[in-house]
């Protein structure tokens, strides 16, 4: 029987190919399981170990020589303020640079060199950025071993990531969308602002999240620029205790800028440094503090990501997809 022979051959051949397909699916499943289990294990271990320390007092206490009284007040405030400076500096700069390079810059050898360099910068070890910042921000610009220096250093560190992801996001926007806007008489800027950016914003946001998540866990460059490891005070509050809260003055320029932005120049520590400090203590009680601080750091990253996802949702709704 000619036909059934042929069919048999087809079947064995299909089976062989399906087998290869199945094997790859199994390997893929195994790898993802290994990654997930390790990640989950690490997080759970931190959580379980640190859980007894996670109390209101832990968040509102300064570090202390007694492990059960020590807290992360100065660390989480420091991390929050540094990340604020980092985000405010790196996000607008990085997105603007990405837009310029992708949409405006002429495509020639200069652009190629810039592209190669930006991509390489994303891979430079973070300690190198710390050294650069020590020379530039601390010694040259005299910004001090302060929140602003740390924020700008981490901003430099993540700038290449933001630029590269912005460019990739813009490149993924279909050209037909640009042509539609141009054909109606839009300028380049109107095309970018009204259509290209909203269309690429989701991907840009994802890049920003990845970049900020990297910055929040950085230790080496922050130590290099001189962050403290033991600090028992907070930066001065920019706001007054009672109404109208803003530090107003009776004469021009009406606002006390020194008070409003004074916190930028304050000494600080950040969560990863606090953790490192505790881990390196001989007293095992401090290990629990470190685990608790690690849990909080992960939670802070999650909150940050959540905020970015919410923003993305808001922008998307504005675009009326």
């Amino acid at each position: 029987m000619l036909i059934s022979d042929n069919l048999k051959e087809v079947r064995t051949q299909v089976q062989r190919r399906q087998l290869a397909n199945g094997i790859f699916a199994m390997i893929g499943l195994l790898t993802i399981l290994v990654a997930l289990i390790i990640l989950l294990g690490l997080t759970l271990q931190l959580l379980i170990q640190g859980a007894p320390r996670l109390s209101w007092d832990f968040f509102t206490s300064f570090p202390s020589r007694k492990p059960e009284q020590a807290g992360i007040l100065s660390a989480w405030v420091g991390t929050s303020l540094v990340m604020l400076v980092t985000a405010l500096a790196a996000v607008p700069l990085g997105i603007a640079a990405g837009i310029y390079l992708e949409e405006y810059a002429r495509k020639n050898w200069v652009a190629d060199i810039i592209e190669i360099n930006v991509t390489n910068l994303a891979g430079v070890p973070s300690i190198v950025y710390g050294l650069l910042a020590l020379g530039l921000f601390v010694y040259q610009f005299k910004l001090g071993e302060s929140i602003q220096t740390a924020g700008l250093t981490l901003a430099l560190l993540i700038l290449p990531i933001v630029i590269v992801t912005t460019r990739e996001a813009l490149r993924a926007v279909p050209n037909s969308l640009r042509e539609a806007a141009y054909a109606l008489g839009a300028t380049k800027w109107q095309t970018i602002w009204d259509h290209v950016l909203p269309c690429g914003l989701g991907s840009i946001m994802t890049g920003v999240i990845v970049a900020l998540s990297r910055a929040i866990g950085e230790t080496a460059p922050v130590i290099t620029i001189g962050a403290l490891t033991f600090i028992a005070f907070l930066p001065d509050s920019p706001l007054n205790q009672e109404f109208p809260y803003l530090p107003l003055t009776g004469s021009f320029p009406w606002i006390n800028f020194e008070q409003l932005f004074g916190w930028l120049g304050a000494a600080f520590t950040v969560m990863p440094i606090q953790m490192f400090n505790w881990v390196s203590r001989p007293n095992p009680e401090f290990q629990l503090n470190a685990a608790a601080a690690g849990t909080v750091l992960i939670a802070m990253t999650l909150v940050m990501n959540g905020m970015a996802i919410y923003l993305r949702f808001l922008f998307r709704r504005g675009v009326k997809w």
């Binding site: 279909p174 037909s176 969308l177 042509e179 539609a180 806007a181 054909a183 259509h195 909203p198 269309c199 675009v319 009326k320 997809w321």
Partner: peptide
């Protein structure tokens, strides 16, 4: 254009 290209709005 050749392919319909409405804005995603």
């Amino acid at each position: 254009f050749q392919r319909p290209n409405p804005f995603p709005k």
